[in-house]
Amino acid sequence: MGGPHRRPAGSHSTGERVSCSQRKIGNPDVPTSLSRMKGQPMKRYLMCFATLAFAAGCASEEPVADPAVETEHGGVDEAAYSENAAAGEHDEHGDHEHVMFALSGDNTEVLFTGVKDSGDSHSGGFKTLTGEMEICEDKVIGLMVTIETDSLWSDADRLTGHLKNEDFFSVNEFPEMKFESSSITGDGEVTVTGMLTMHGETAEISFPATISVEDDSVKMTSEFQVDRTKFGMDYVGKADDPIKPEVDIKVTVGG
């Protein structure tokens, strides 16, 4: 699998995510007692001029996404990227740029395994997903993934149809499932915590992961369990051999 594409901070594909180091732009402190300056035109003029100058100075510090950064094929114009990196935001980590790595079905693999009480198991995964990993100082500080549930596959055709139906993912009703991290703690061996939205239900999950950030790629592996009943998937199957509520999940990025 190829490494995720690198894009400078500020040029988000989702268009809504705010860089972690974006500086707040304060509103100009407009005098509330202009009426008191009645009869003092010079003071009023100077106050207005100072206000405008202050506002202009704040506006100039807002980062501007360079439309020339992304190339035709979605890659990165290295020259423009370097310029942006040099003019990057000041943040709590000092002069370090933030990079967004795009995730897709080509570089990310999400697998699951369901197990019955008897030990019988079935495996599957999802083929189509999009997402981003936010990198700062060679550390992953944010993770957001959206998976198309209709891209589900399994090791048996009938099981695939059953998993897509109302008993489990109900893909026609819930076409997407999302995960958005709220914190990633640790270095190398990390703990990812965030909100998972699946089957119309949202719950917080935490899972361990091993992440390595290199010059041109990010690699992540993680194995954990999710309790599907917390997300409204309460179908147990046969009474004498029920399906366990815990599902084993394996995520691989860049591997």
Binding site: R158, G161, H162, K164, N165, E166, D167, Y235
Partner: peptide, 9 residues
């Protein structure tokens, strides 16, 4: 319904 993989239905 069973043939449609909708065992709950």
């Amino acid at each position: 319904q069973a043939q449609s993989f909708g065992l709950k239905f």
